[in-house]
């Protein structure tokens, strides 16, 4: 029930953002600064949120009259092998991300990209790495 309410809220928020984006696009004749991108960001995020909520509602309705399929889906979600596979895949992609983002930052620096954008990327990169270190210490204490 809680999830159902949440999904309906997501659908409404998504629709509001989408419509607001469309209205801004239609009403502003010569947008300046942030207003040039904002309506399209609203439309994009609105569509994403709407799709997420509507997808959840439809999938819940689809399995509502079929408890066997619902149980199978739940088992698939909680299956320890599936969880292990997902975690290993995530760990591999994280390792790859460290190299790819590192190479991208060096490339941007050599290309002479604006310092603000480059620093934002470096901070985001460091944030992810420190997040990993934090959880390493946290799990070290827990296990």
């Amino acid at each position: 029930m809680k999830n159902s309410v949440k999904d309906h809220c997501l659908v409404i928020i998504g629709l509001i953002l989408f419509v607001a984006g469309l209205i801004i696009v239609k009403t502003l004749s010569e947008p300046q600064g942030v207003m040039r991108a904002l309506p399209y960001v609203c439309i994009g995020i609105g569509c994403g949120i709407f799709g997420q909520g509507m997808g959840n509602i439809i999938s819940r309705k689809a399995v509502k009259n079929n408890p066997d399929i619902y149980k199978q889906i739940e088992i698939g979600k909680k299956d320890e092998r599936n969880i292990t596979i997902a975690n290993r895949a995530k760990a591999k992609s994280y390792d790859m991300m460290i190299f790819v983002f590192g190479a991208l930052m060096v490339s941007f620096a050599l290309m002479g990209v604006e310092v603000t954008a480059l620093l934002l990327l470096v901070f985001a990169y460091l944030f992810v790495i420190f997040y990993g270190i934090y959880y390493r210490f946290k799990y070290e204490k827990e296990m």
Binding site: I75, G76, K78, D79, E80, R81, N82
Partner: peptide
């Protein structure tokens, strides 16, 4: 698999 609440693939593997 149903009794142990895992997927059939897990039992196979």
């Amino acid at each position: 698999a149903a009794a142990l609440e895992v997927t059939r693939q897990t039992i196979g593997s």
